[in-house]
């Protein structure tokens, strides 16, 4: 029987503590055939099981161009993420997915891309960034604006360093005023302000944005002022999910089921939705 709710078993191959309450896992399927055949598209998500506690939804944060494993990053917040947080290398988890739609990066060939992320909003954007970097010649200028409340809360610190070192990526790292440390070399200020400073050109250009609602709200205004069309601004929505396949009835924003019809939408599409955020 085709059991939609039966997870696949995965082993935690690597675990990394990003911040005091954010962890990243690198997962591989126990089933070797599945390890080979598993594919996904950038922007899709999965449901991760801590057996005995339940399932939680997060994006797949690596890029489909890097095969053989799944990466995820999550903050310890509730019961399930607390349980997952306690797991470590060699432990077994469950995975269901990939689910949802994806960022249409094939349509972005030749365009400049600006990534805007705040806090734990970077993991879904990272999947797109890695995908674009792995196909670097397909795209124009790549700009990344990433900020968090304080230096300690920045995720993927090693990777940020790597992006910073590349001369084909413009990286703006920032922390909220008061969140800087004495040796902080990046910007100080809220993400929308830094985005204004980075001032990406709107022509033939795409923006990908993910972060807390307040950051998204003000960054969208900045993008609008810069001249970006709502059709060129992409984000990924999230809501509480249980099934991931459009049956359990809770992730809908008005008539849109994020798990099946999302989670990736343009700002233009979001403006047409029932206001159910």
């Amino acid at each position: 029987m085709e059991n939609l709710y039966l997870p696949k078993l995965v082993t935690i191959e690597d675990a990394y503590l990003e911040t005091p309450d954010v962890k990243s896992f690198r997962l591989v399927f126990k089933d070797e055939a599945l390890r080979e055949s598993f594919t996904f598209k950038t922007g899709q998500f999965g449901l991760y099981s801590a057996f005995g506690l339940g399932e939680s939804t997060f994006c797949i944060s690596n890029a489909p161009t890097r095969k053989g494993y799944i990466q995820c990053t999550f903050r310890k917040t509730g019961r399930v993420t607390g349980g997952l947080f306690d797991l470590s290398i060699g432990d077994t988890m469950g995975f269901r997915g990939p689910f949802g739609n994806h960022f249409p990066i094939d349509e972005w060939k030749g365009k400049d891309i600006t990534f805007i992320a705040g806090g734990i909003g970077l993991p879904p954007v990272r999947s797109v960034i890695l995908n674009c970097l792995d196909r670097r010649e397909d795209f124009g200028d790549i700009t990344i604006v990433y900020g968090s409340r304080c230096v300690e809360d920045l995720v993927y610190k090693n990777e940020l360093q790597h992006w910073n070192d590349r001369d084909d990526v413009a990286l703006y790292q920032t922390v909220d005023p008061g969140g800087e440390t004495p040796d902080w070399k990046g910007e100080v200020g809220f993400v929308p302000m830094i985005l204004e400073k980075a001032a990406p050109k709107p022509k033939n250009s795409i923006a990908v944005i993910c972060g807390p609602p307040i950051m998204i709200k003000f960054s969208l205004s900045v993008l609008e002022e810069l001249g970006f069309s709502d059709n060129d601004v992409y984000t990924t929505l999230e809501n509480k999910m249980k099934c991931g396949v459009g049956k359990c009835g809770r992730c809908n924003v008005g008539d849109i089921y994020i798990c099946k019809e999302g989670p990736v939408y343009t700002a233009a599409e979001i403006k047409k939705m029932y206001y159910d955020f």
């Binding site: 709710y5 057996f51 005995g52 339940g54 399932e55 249980k242 049956k247 359990c248 009835g249 809770r250």
Partner: peptide, 24 residues
Amino acid sequence: CHCFDITDEGTAFGGERRKNWDAC
């Protein structure tokens, strides 16, 4: 009405994953 929850019931050593009615 079709909404449901998916929860684990049991102990740290074993149990069941269930679909239970839920309500919006």
